[in-house]
């Protein structure tokens, strides 16, 4: 037993500290065990209804006033799924190129060495400015970006895409530059020795080597973009989240479940697709998890 204590040592205190932190936070938030169950009969009833509806998702609209020529609900749900996919694709197609540029500027792999002092100062400031810029654009949540853009530009597909793309290019760019900087430099050295320039070395010796990791991570972020795209529905952009919110407002829980099942199915399929891609590229999300 003694050996084990030695192995953990300090780590024990980390555990203890986390328990204390949790209790403090729970106190500040007013969390009590009693809060984990519905507070009154009305809430109990609603909860029961909601979970009962899980076994009985709607195949027809619960609302009697839907016009006859409206799409059937399953078709509306599938359309919602595709609208969600659309915003994710659009946003990622903006975010990945932006992130490549930002990631390049925020990495030191393409710096010439040796270089003069003035060049060095210039490169350092480019590095810091781009890192700070990435930090700023990803510090604001996509929902808040969406609020700002919708207010400034009006409701439009482009506003939704840009709102998603901004924080995503910040995160992608940061991780891209880290992936690039951690890539082995032996090939780059060899290419420099036969006359390749610094930027050329970066493009042909380092970037191709980092590509599988960049692709894997981009795909992982695409999965995240899908979830965020669904949530954009809650600020009024037409994705499946909007349908969920509207049905929920009217207490049409069976409709909510229809949409929920479609949403979960889509995300699980994309999750499995991503896992298959990572397996074939021999990469993991490891090291780049935000």
């Amino acid at each position: 037993m003694k050996a084990e204590t030695g192995k953990y040592g300090l780590k024990r205190w980390v555990g203890l500290g986390l328990i204390v932190a949790f209790l403090l936070c729970a106190r500040a938030l007013g969390l009590t065990p009693g809060g984990l169950i519905p507070p009154d009969a009305g809430h109990w009833e609603r909860t029961g209804e909601f979970f009962a509806a899980a076994l009985d998702p709607a195949f027809d609209y619960e609302d009697g006033n839907v016009p006859d020529d409206a799409d059937p609900i399953w078709w509306k749900g599938i359309k919602g799924v595709f609208l969600t996919l659309k915003f994710a694709f659009g946003a990622m197609s903006l975010a990945v190129p932006t992130a490549l540029v930002l990631g390049f500027l925020g990495s030191s792999a393409w710096w010439p060495e040796p270089c003069g002092r003035r060049t060095r100062v210039l490169l350092r400031s480019v590095y810091l400015v781009s890192r700070l810029f990435m930090s700023v654009i990803r510090s604001i949540h996509e929902l808040i970006w969406a609020l700002l853009f919708l207010s400034a530009m009006g409701v439009s597909p482009l506003a939704g895409m840009i709102a998603l793309a901004l924080p995503f290019s910040g995160t992608l760019g940061k991780v891209f530059s880290e992936i690039i900087d951690e890539e082995a430099r032996d090939a780059a050295q060899a290419l420099k020795a036969i006359g390749h320039g610094p930027v050329q070395t970066f493009l042909v010796g380092i970037l191709p080597r980092a590509t599988p990791n960049l692709v894997s991570y981009s795909f992982y972020r695409f999965e995240c973009a899908l979830r965020s795209s669904a949530v954009l529905g809650f600020v009024g952009i037409e994705t499946i989240g909007l349908y969920i919110e509207l049905s929920h407002e009217e207490f049409y829980y069976r409709e909510v479940w229809t949409y929920l099942y479609l949403l979960i199915a889509m995300i699980v399929v994309v999750d499995l697709w991503g896992a298959a891609i990572r397996r074939r590229l021999h990469t993991s999300t490891g090291g780049c998890a935000i």
Partner: peptide, 20 residues
């Protein structure tokens, strides 16, 4: 797979408006 915003939205309607 379910976005946290959606889970919170659904849980609030069951547990009431509190931090849980």
């Amino acid at each position: 797979s379910v976005p946290e915003y959606l889970i919170a939205f659904l849980l609030i309607s069951m547990l009431g408006l509190q931090f849980w």
